[in-house]
Each structure stands twice: as structure tokens, then as C-alpha cells.
Design a protein around this nucleic acid. Structure first.
Length: 584
RNA sequence: GCGCCCGUAGCUCAACUGGAUAGAGCACGUGCCUUCUAAGCACGGGGUUGCAGGUUCGAGUCCUGCCGGGCGCGCCA
């Protein structure tokens, strides 16, 4: 149970009893009442704004109403002190015993502490990466990959039924270009003089292997043959090989999506026609002419009647074309079909992780999903902004044209999977960020992963060494669970306890707004409090966790240490990072 | 020209989706290892939250208008 919720319930009960007592002249809007943990500790443990937001309904001054609510709250057993502050906040300080008791929960649930049923097993689909299958993943994909993966973990933790998915764009022009690039390398592998790679083909060295593969599988039977004869085969084989690379790149990041959906398969199955008919029956499709965008110079603009989807009916700026001039479906049309398919598979919510370069696509996609499902909140799109790579403060530039971009694999090889994962989560997803490859491999506070792992390792170290110092080899979890937590009364210990037991509400808040980066900040704060307490023991030996002369106190402290380790591990599990027990 | 995102300490970024005196890290300065991991800790200076209005008990957060940066804008995906 979240601490906030406990007191939220108390406050709501008090207000409804005041309603019965006739204190309010108009019906108070409970939803405006916020029960919070204030950031300034001098404001106590719980802050309540009820008196300020409801004063008008009671025709009272905020502080006057506050006094009435306060007197009821002060009767609660766990409240040590209550006061009215500022414009009418009610601040509660809770008894140490209340906080200490919460540790029992942590030791009971271990690394599952923070799990909840907030999501009520609702089906959610999280789609991320979905890079074109035309080469290995590069660094630009890293942020979206990690954000999607961790968001999925986070939603699972709070009780959603999550499916992760990758959409393979294997139906467009680009895969024909890919097939031609493969054919070029195939001819090269057969030993023919092919010259330089023609403009427009994928120039990367990774295609050489594809060419060799095709040459050894197929021999020279396609050499000199017309394109229509070989393109389908080359397309399929090459896409398959590219996806193998993509899957292995994702695996190197610790990611494995549940489902891979092929765009081409959807088209072949006729789903685009299905959704077209569906939208057509809703009178959302018409033939019309779009005006060219103002302020731009459309070099090859040509007025043309098109098949359009009425996305303006759902908040988009202009209606969007569904068919190209050659009569084939646009990418957008296929994508509508894809989301139609997801909808038919029964997902109540869909989350797409996009790169910032797709921001212009958000409105039309949400419009399409609204049209399909009849609900505007089915699809949520998270944009991941650009990551500027640096090394020792110097920007790393990369040129796509030569094919010499930095691959995701390069990045992982250089700094490690865990660092890539964690750093991507130290910023809000929709703000640009810097990533300095040099700083994050240091074993210092510059490297937030190590700072956290160090805290976890220290916890493990204490728990490892304690039995020997105490002369008691049996330090079971049951023993820790039943410890006398009232002995944990040092301010540093209580600060740490408060942080540890606020984990469930941090998890739920992060899940609710879909912002996994909040966990990173919480965990950093937790590690900071732990390191601080550790060092207090250096200055004052009576604060050391292990005290051979006071076994009861020691067991209580070890329980706290164990709780810290559980919560760090719980957080790292969400991040897909293995907590380490030793750092030496 | 239009749309979306962003602008917070010298630098990199938070701020619990409207709360109280806007917080961390880095950098700079000063201290702390006989002791559970000093890969750490403690203390200190540093701000008109881009600018100007508005909404209200209360604004970094919401609204309007400017300034500055990023991304995107039919027949690419």
C-alpha cells in the first residue's frame, strides 16, 4: 500500500464526514485534493492541500477549514504532529514507528516490492525500434529501444498485460533498393568487375557478406538475368538476413520483443483493404486535392486529385493521402492497417516509440487510430529526441552518406550494455541529451550506473561480512523480517527508510505518466542516502551497520540494508540491468 | 509560412503532470581512510526558470504574444 494512498483515503473520509455535518455549502470536488510528500522535509512527511482547494465550497478562509480537517487528522494513530502552514497546507509528521513498520513489506516482497495491480491486467502493446530492415541498428535507435523496453517492464510491474512488438517495414521501395544492393554485392562476390557502388544503393560493408551468402547459395544463375526474375527472392533473403542482424543487435542490448509483424504480410493478407472499407463506411474517405504547404518551394508540385483520409476530423492539420499516383497504398495506409490489426488483436492501449524525426507523423497516426477505435486515448506516442554523442567533451560526427555511421553494436562494445541502457534513462525522453562516452566508463560519480551498483555491492558486502563479525552464521531472511525496527532511530536511518518505502508510489507515478527516467532519479537519491549513512559510520562507529556488541540493533540495521538492496535490485530489474554483488 | 518539441546555476540535467525558500551531478574551494568496499562522504559559493503580459490563494509548470534552438511538412518510409 502506498503511503500517499493511505492518507488520501483518510482525508477523503474526513471530507465526506464534514459534508454530512453540513460544513460545505456546495459540493466539494474531491479530485482537486492532493496528498503529497513534500520535497522540503521541514514540511513534514505528508502535505495536504484540501483546505485551500475546498475553502470556497465551505465559504471559509483556507486556514479556517484547515483547522477543522487538521483536528480530525491529528486523531489518527500514526500522526505524530500536524500543523497548518503557509496559505493553508496541512502538514503531517508521522511517527517513526509508522515508517519502520513499512520495512516489513519490503522484506516480504523482496525484489517484487513495488509491484501492483494498477494496470488491472489491461492489454497494452508497446511498439518500439521498428527500424527499416536495411542494415544494422545504429546509435539513433538506442534511445527508443531502451525507452520502449523499460517502459514495457515498468508497465508489467504495475500490472498491465504487456506485449512488445517490432514492425518490419518490408513492403516499401527501400527494400527493393536493398535487394538491388544485395544483387550488386552478389555479382561482386561472383568475381565480376562491378565498379563503384552506384548512387542510391546501400553502400555499407555489411552488404558484402550478404552478397557472398547469395553467391554461395544461388551460384551464378541470376547473373545477367532481368531484375523481375530475381528481385523477389533477393528481397526476401536479404530482409531475412537484415532482421537477423537487427535481432542480434537488440539481443546485445538485452532486448527481445514478443512479436515481429511484417508490413508485407499485412498487405498480402488484404488488411489494408479491410481498413479502407471500414473507414469508407464511416465516410472518412474522399477524393480531393491538397494545397501545397505554404512557405515551401515545391519543386515538382503537381495538382492532383488523391484518395484522402479525413484526419482533420480527429485533430490533424490536413487530410492525408492513402494512395500514391501509381495506385498503390501509401506508407500511411499500410500503417493504418497495422494499427487496425493491433486493435483487432485486442489491445486496449497502444504505445509507439518514435524518433523525433517522425514527430510530424504523430497527429495523423493518432487520428487514424481514433477513427478505428472510436477513442482518442487508445494510441499514445512517445517521442525520443536526438542523443548527441560526445567523447571527452568533443562531439562525435557521423556521416550517413558514406555508410560510416556508428552502429549500436559499436556503442555497446565501447561502454557496455548496462551503461547504454541506464544513460538513456537519465533524461526525459522528449528532450535532447548529451552522452559522453568517456565520462560514463569512469568508476566514479560521473557514472550513475556505477554509483548505483556500488551502493548495491556495499549492501551485499555488509550482509556477507556480518555473520562472521557477529559469530552467528545463520542470518536468514526470516530473522531480518522479524527484527526490531524501532531501533532504527538515527535521522540518517529514518531518511533512508522513508526513501526505501516510497518506492511503490514512485513506480506507479512513473508508470502512470510513462516516464521511466523518474526511476533513475529515485534510485540515484536512494544510493546517495545509503552512501551517506555508510560514511556516517566511518565518523561515528556506533552508526556502523554491524555492531558486535549489540546484536539486536545489528539485525535491525541489516534488515534495512537488505531492504535497500532489494529496492535497488527491483529498480535495476525494470531497467534490464543485472545488480552486481561485488565491484572489486 | 504552418505544425510538434525544447529554452532552468559556468556545463549536463531534475523538479512527483499547479504547491511552500526551484534541486542534483560535473567544475571550483576546504575537510574526512587503524574501522562493514574512500570507485565514497561532509561543508561552501553559484538563479529575475529566454522576454512581456494573463488566469488564481499559489506559475518553471496552464493561456496569449514575441525572441532563440531542434525536428517535420503530397506521389519516402
Amino acid at each position: 500500500m502506498q503511503i500517499k494512498k493511505i492518507f488520501q483515503d483518510h482525508v477523503i473520509n474526513i471530507i465526506s464526514s464534514l459534508v454530512n455535518d453540513g460544513v460545505f455549502v456546495s459540493r466539494p470536488d474531491i479530485s482537486r485534493v492532493v496528498v503529497d510528500t513534500p520535497r522540503d522535509t521541514s514540511h513534514g512527511d505528508i502535505a495536504i492541500n484540501a483546505a485551500m482547494v475546498l475553502s470556497k465550497d465551505a465559504r471559509m478562509a483556507p486556514r479556517e477549514l484547515a483547522e477543522i480537517i487538521q483536528s480530525k487528522l491529528s486523531e489518527l494513530g500514526d500522526v505524530q504532529k500536524s500543523e497548518i502552514a503557509g496559505p493553508g497546507f496541512i502538514n503531517l509528521s508521522l511517527k517513526a514507528d509508522f515508517w519502520q513498520r513499512q520495512l516489513t513489506e519490503v522484506l516480504k516482497y523482496k525484489t517484487n516490492y513495488g509491484d501492483s495491480n494498477f494496470g488491472e491486467s489491461k492489454k497494452v502493446n508497446v511498439e518500439y525500434v521498428s527500424a527499416n530492415p536495411t542494415g544494422p541498428l545504429h546509435v539513433a535507435h538506442a534511445r527508443g529501444a531502451v525507452t520502449g523496453d523499460v517502459l514495457a517492464n515498468l508497465l508489467r510491474k504495475v500490472g498491465y498485460d504487456v506485449t512488445t512488438e517490432y514492425y518490419i517495414n518490408d513492403a516499401g521501395n527501400q527494400v527493393d533498393v536493398l535487394a538491388r544492393s544485395a544483387y550488386f554485392r552478389y555479382c561482386e562476390a561472383l568475381g565480376h568487375d562491378v565498379g563503384e557502388i552506384p548512387d542510391g544503393l546501400y553502400p555499407g560493408d555489411y552488404m558484402i557478406e550478404v552478397g557472398h551468402c547469395l553467391a554461395s547459395e544461388e551460384g551464378d544463375k541470376w547473373y545477367g538475368v532481368d531484375e523481375v526474375e530475381w528481385i523477389k527472392l533477393f528481397r526476401e533473403v536479404t530482409v531475412e538476413m537484415m532482421m537477423k542482424t537487427v535481432r542480434s543487435d537488440l539481443a546485445a542490448l538485452g532486448i527481445k520483443q514478443d512479436i515481429f509483424t511484417s508490413e508485407r504480410a499485412l498487405v498480402d493478407a488484404g488488411i489494408v483493404n479491410d481498413v479502407f472499407n471500414d473507414l469508407n463506411s464511416k465516410e472518412l474517405i474522399y477524393k480531393g486535392v491538397l494545397e501545397p504547404p505554404k512557405g515551401m518551394k515545391p519543386d515538382d508540385w503537381e495538382r492532383r486529385e488523391q484518395t484522402l483520409f479525413k484526419s482533420t476530423s480527429f485533430g490533424d492539420d490536413i487530410d492525408r493521402p492513402l494512395k500514391k499516383s501509381d495506385g498503390s497504398w501509401t506508407y500511411f495506409a499500410n500503417d493504418i492497417a497495422y494499427h487496425y490489426d493491433k486493435h483487432r488483436r485486442g489491445y486496449e492501449f497502444m504505445i509507439n516509440i518514435f524518433g523525433a524525426d517522425h514527430s510530424g507523423y504523430v497527429k495523423r497516426m493518432k487520428a487514424a487510430v481514433s477513427a478505428i477505435t472510436g477513442r482518442s486515448d487508445t494510441l499514445n506516442i512517445k517521442l525520443c529526441q536526438i542523443v548527441h554523442l560526445k567523447k571527452g567533451g568533443k562531439p562525435i560526427r557521423m556521416s550517413k552518406r558514406s555508410g560510416n555511421f556508428i552502429t549500436l553494436r559499436d556503442l555497446i562494445d565501447e561502454v557496455g550494455k548496462d551503461v547504454v541502457r541506464f544513460i538513456m534513462l537519465t533524461r526525459k525522453n522528449d528532450t535532447q541529451m548529451e552522452f559522453d562516452l568517456k565520462k560514463v566508463v569512469d568508476h566514479s560519480r560521473d557514472n550513475p550506473v556505477f554509483y548505483l551498483q556500488y551502493a548495491h555491492a556495499r549492501c551485499c558486502s555488509v550482509l556477507r561480512n556480518a555473520p562472521e563479525i557477529l559469530g552467528n552464521p545463520k542470518l536468514t531472511l526470516n530473522l531480518l523480517h522479524d527484527a526490531d525496527f524501532s531501533k532504527l532511530d538515527d535521522p540518517g536511518e529514518l531518511d533512508l527508510i522513508r526513501q526505501v518505502v516510497s518506492w511503490p508510489q514512485v513506480v506507479e507515478a512513473a508508470a502512470e505518466v510513462q516516464e521511466p527516467h523518474r526511476l533513475a532519479y529515485y534510485l540515484n537519491d536512494l544510493a546517495e542516502l545509503f552512501h551517506a549513512l555508510w560514511n556516517k559510520g566511518r565518523d561515528n562507529s556506533s552508526l556502523r551497520f554491524v555492531n558486535s556488541e549489540n546484536p539486536d540493533l545489528t539485525v535491525a540495521r541489516l534488515a534495512l540494508v537488505q531492504a535497500v538492496a532489494f529496492v535497488i535490485a527491483s529498480g535495476l530489474n525494470v531497467f534490464g540491468i543485472e545488480p552486481v554483488e561485488e565491484l572489486r
